[in-house]
Design a protein around this nucleic acid. Structure first.
Lengths: 216, 216
DNA sequence: GGAATAATTTACACCTAGTATAAATATTCA
DNA sequence: TGAATATTTATACTAGGTGTAAATTATTCC
């Protein structure tokens, strides 16, 4: 029987876990004390007692140490497979679900609570993760290009080209995932992907209920 | 009679304009040749024959030289004033209109065409401007916090806190503006802010017309 | 337990975006 | 032309992020 994860126990593994936690905790504490821009990666390294290079072995960016990594976000083939599989639901909901699930995976309770505190008091941080989300967005756009080409019946913007729908969709999916995260962190409900989509729909259509409407 | 723009003619002004154009042209040409990541700011400076510092006097970031600046985006008081003024329309449409207008202002025909070409062949670039959009988004969020506090009747997410609505709204406005820009650049229609909002609404609701729906 | 081997960490040097400062240069206007 | 002013420049710096090769550290096999 082959093991999927090369090492899921042993000293090496435990140290890794501890180091990763130390980094996340240090990052969140420092950001709480001095704000995002008042903290450098080297500050975080110093507190977590690791080198800068090790930091970047664990986290692809400064933001990811504070905001969480997209650990389990599937690679391109896997993503496509998931889309193929969930052909009963709106693909946007599927994507928003995956992005959400990959955001806070494998992090301990403590860190999740700390991060929530930090985000509640500095909601601008919701928009710091851009660089990391870009990779996610690219994957999504690529997967959708294949998927929608092969399953035109699943398209939701039939008047646009497939490439355009993929572009708009990847952007929308990330936007919905972020909105969901904001609602979850700042409020106290945990809306489903579908809930968030409905909420945003209602939000957008509320625009038509104002006096004059449609002018710009 | 006081002049609003300190100098709208004279050698100094003309040189400025020429330099700015040279930078935009150089940036777009180089990116066409080598891709965004294959070009450094210093490459652009070399071709445009200016120093790096001058580059950053003209443009707040590398991305802004390629994608366009937000020249005329109003400052916080002005933005608030605009919102107060346009009380007949959906505030999202107002914001999307302003963002769109401030993106490609004062640029010559040539550059607009070049930029369009570049974006059509490298649509990932639509997501490069993040850093610059962040400032815009902050302004919007701040303006909305005041505006919605003083005009609760204009709120569109009455079940959430004002701060939450401001957060979601600023994010949504930027998203809509980007979607509009994508549709405009990649397609050949120029949808209005309201059109885009309606299109996205239709898009989101199309998700409910699939077989199973609602699961994640 | 100890040596060979493999995985990680580290120090170090490097690249690039972006900022600050002060000297040099160009423009304006009298 | 020359004084006042705006702009550019050279230069040096900070910070995020990457690549490389040496040094640690864990594992494994005897």
């Amino acid at each position: 029987m082959e093991q999927i994860q090369p090492s899921t126990e042993g000293l090496r593994y435990r140290k890794k876990l501890k180091a990763r936690l130390a980094v996340e905790r240090s990052a969140l504490e420092l950001v709480t004390e001095r704000g995002y821009d008042g903290v450098t990666v080297e500050d975080i390294c110093a507190r977590a007692e690791i080198s800068k290079k090790t930091f970047f072995n664990y986290f692809p960016s400064k933001a990811s140490a504070v905001m969480g990594r997209f650990d389990t976000f599937p690679n391109d083939e896997h993503l496509l497979a998931i889309l193929e599989e969930h052909d009963e639901a709106c693909y946007l909901d599927v994507l928003v679900g995956i992005v959400g699930a990959s955001m806070a995976s494998g992090v301990d309770e403590d860190i999740v609570a700390l991060r929530r505190e930090v985000l509640r008091s500095m909601p601008q941080l919701f928009f710091q993760g851009q660089r990391d989300l870009l990779a996610v967005q690219h994957s999504i756009a690529a997967a959708l290009r294949s998927y929608l080409s092969e399953h035109p019946e699943r398209r939701m913007l039939s008047n646009q080209l497939v490439d355009e729908e993929a572009l708009v969709a990847s952007s929308t999916a990330i936007g919905l995932a972020r909105t969901r995260s904001m609602l979850h962190v700042c409020g106290d409900s945990k809306p489903s992907a579908t809930d968030v989509r409905h909420l945003v729909m209602a939000y957008l259509s509320a625009g038509d209920r104002v006096s004059g409407a449609s002018c710009l």
